[in-house]
């Protein structure tokens, strides 16, 4: 199959220059967002500098329906086991100053999937470790509003997390995308990072 060899070589040169001197890339990326974390459970925060765990109990009281754990690098480990944990998870993220919204997927949502934020290709604000039903939010990857070099203003992004639950209310799947405006509903399966396992 034919190859645009000149384009290929010139693009390689441009990329090589960017890799050697990454400053121009950084200049156009979303500014690093300062983590605005307010610890809701200050006593726990004082006792454990690297982790804040906030579980809520399910109806049976057997195990937490969700948990949020702050790691030493500022990322947040999420665990969402059942649908009843969703409101608490949303509330907790808000209290921790994370610009994130959590919705239950609605296949009949009239507006479908929300438009992605223009920062969607900057990075992945949510990744998934190997453990099932766990996800890691990277708050510094949720870009703030920014003024582009041409003077245009791009709104701040919000991490929209859409969960799907089974008939027994257990979590079946989680997807996410960065949005500029949080919708009132969303269809499930709105995508996510390439490394998602949930």
């Amino acid at each position: 199959m034919s190859t645009p060899t000149g384009f290929k070589q010139r693009l390689e040169s441009e990329l090589s220059a960017m890799a050697t001197d990454p400053a121009p890339l950084r200049a156009t990326r979303a500014p690093a967002r300062r983590l605005r974390v307010r610890f809701a459970v200050t006593a726990v925060a004082a006792a454990a500098a690297t982790a804040v765990v906030v579980p809520t109990l399910s109806g049976s009281g057997a195990s937490p329906a969700y948990a949020v754990t702050k790691q030493g690098d500022g990322s947040l480990v999420l665990r969402l086991d059942r649908a009843e944990g969703l409101p608490g998870l949303q509330k907790q993220l808000k209290e921790m100053g994370v610009r994130a919204a959590v919705l239950e997927g609605d296949k009949k949502c009239p507006t479908g999937a929300p438009p992605e934020s223009p920062w969607a290709t900057e990075d992945y604000a949510m990744t998934f470790p190997a453990q099932p039903w766990k996800a890691v939010i990277h708050p510094d990857m949720i870009p703030d509003a920014a003024v582009l070099p041409d003077g245009r203003r791009v709104g701040a992004a919000t991490l929209l997390v859409v969960a799907e639950f089974g008939k027994d209310h257990s979590t079946q799947a989680v997807s996410f995308r960065l949005v500029e405006k949080v919708p009132t509903c969303s269809v499930p399966g709105i995508g996510g990072g390439p490394d998602a396992h949930m």
Binding site: A173, V174, G189, G192, H197, M198
Partner: peptide, 10 residues
């Protein structure tokens, strides 16, 4: 599944 952020069953 990895590219879309979904599990394989989905």
């Amino acid at each position: 599944a990895q590219a879309l952020g979904l599990n394989q069953a989905t």
